[in-house]
Design a protein around this nucleic acid. Structure first.
Lengths: 250, 250
DNA sequence: CGAAATATTGACAATGATCAACTCTTGTGG
DNA sequence: CCACAAGAGTTGATCATTGTCAATATTTCG
């Protein structure tokens, strides 16, 4: 679709030049009053929460093209932290600029809303995993989800992808212990489902994995969205554009 | 705050007259192409997902003043179902009307976005529960969350509230088995934390419960939101208004 | 090379699931 | 108003998944 010149201009000019955040550093800190919104341009990050005794739950993985801190920025609910899983390029938009979008460029505002809705959908699937899937199914589901999302942004070749996530992080993602994650990965390898080595994953039997965890890609595979209105279509395409044409945007 | 006459008019006229949905009936069906958005005016509902083998995970509880099907309506991702926990009054808005809001009444559009953001925050907390809290902590957390939310809409008196949720449903909410839910509730009673009888709950030791589950009410207690801009303030107040003045709105 | 982080494995413990029975409530029809 | 059925709650016994502890590779990187 065509962005209007205005919209295009906004996307190009609104964000800072991307800054580098190194692996392990925090991008957003939970209780901070930081009111900027960040767009991940390259690298992986993850959103997480800590309990007072140190237990950690990772909410989800942030991939290139995803926003971070939207909620915190717009509504002051900085309820979780975000840290870089590997070296990341991050550009920053003042929250006010995004708030202003609602009055000025409604289609972009809707694209933002779409982005949060998509995130909620992924959270919901993750929640089902933690509540009702066992370790094996859960792990399968996570790997498929990441694979699908990486495909959308062209970061998976030949069923393989880089995987900058240690088993300890996997444990905090999946609500399991490190030891059990290790065993589950071994089981998946043993069954010929995946090829796993520190730092990379290859999906060997996608079909079988799909069945094991009842994977439903509706919430990821944006192309399959039933699109009913112009504004919806446009919103989607804007976001697509953000993904594909990162160097030009924000 | 003051809604503009236009905004007020929209809220009053956009929704259908409320319809009654009886306990157990579905309000939204997962795979349906229904593109309307619903506002719960009275009663409780819950959003849930099913796995093919019948396992069910309840995503969250919908209380009066909450929207249902926003995502599905706006973006065609009808990825979960909703059913009535008891008899509900539900009013309906065509999704298109909400989509149009973005171009016409941006402050209301922002209020909608705020509403989805708040929901995501609650999902995130729930996710932490399932991933990193044990049965006892999880149950405590859920009860506190519901209590807090009910306080906001004036449906809790004296630390007590109606609780139209069977133990089987609690199990699907908490990712536990019915049997274990039963034992956990008993443990909470034994410890003098709550008073529980089919259909109602009383919180006896809120402070102790808070500590047990590391409850953080930031995402619920809207009054404590750090409000930085006019538009934020207005968005919040509109939503507040929706809660308090239900008969007049939507 | 050596330290630190990460991965792997075994033994054992614990949380929570499953199975099966039984009780209590509630609502319905006779 | 009672009888009964259905749903909901309760409890005990046993099982299984997953966690914890501890030790040992293995990799990474300065």
């Amino acid at each position: 679709m065509k962005l209007t010149p205005e919209e295009r201009q906004w996307l190009i000019s609104a964000g800072s030049d991307p800054a580098t955040v190194y692996a392990g550093e925090e991008i957003i800190h939970a209780s901070s009053a930081d009111t900027s919104v960040h767009l991940l341009k390259s690298g992986w990050a993850c959103r997480f929460k800590l309990l007072p005794d140190g237990r950690r739950q990772i909410l989800n993985v942030v991939l290139p093209g995803d926003f971070m801190g939207l909620r915190a920025g717009l509504f002051g609910i900085a309820d979780h932290s975000v840290f870089a899983l590997n070296d990341c390029q991050v550009s920053t938009v003042p929250a006010q600029a995004i708030a202003d979008l609602f009055g000025v460029l409604p289609r972009l505002a809707m694209a933002i809303t779409w982005s949060t809705a998509r995130e909620e959908a992924m959270l919901a699937e993750h929640l089902v995993s933690l509540g009702r899937r066992n370790a094996y199914e859960r792990t399968a589901h996570l790997l498929l989800e990441l694979w699908k999302r990486l495909q959308v942004i062209d970061q998976s070749v030949d069923r393989s992808f880089d995987f900058p996530i240690t088993q300890e992080l996997l444990a905090d993602l999946l609500g399991l212990s490190v030891v059990h994650v290790n065993r589950t990965l071994r089981a998946l390898r043993r069954d010929g489902m995946i090829d796993y080595a520190t730092g990379s994953v290859r999906i060997i039997r996608p079909r079988a994995l799909l069945e094991i965890c009842a994977f439903d890609s509706a919430h990821i595979d944006t192309n399959e969205l039933p699109v009913a209105t112009d504004s919806k279509l446009e919103a989607l395409e804007i976001l697509q554009a953000k993904r594909k044409l990162q160097p030009n945007l924000l």
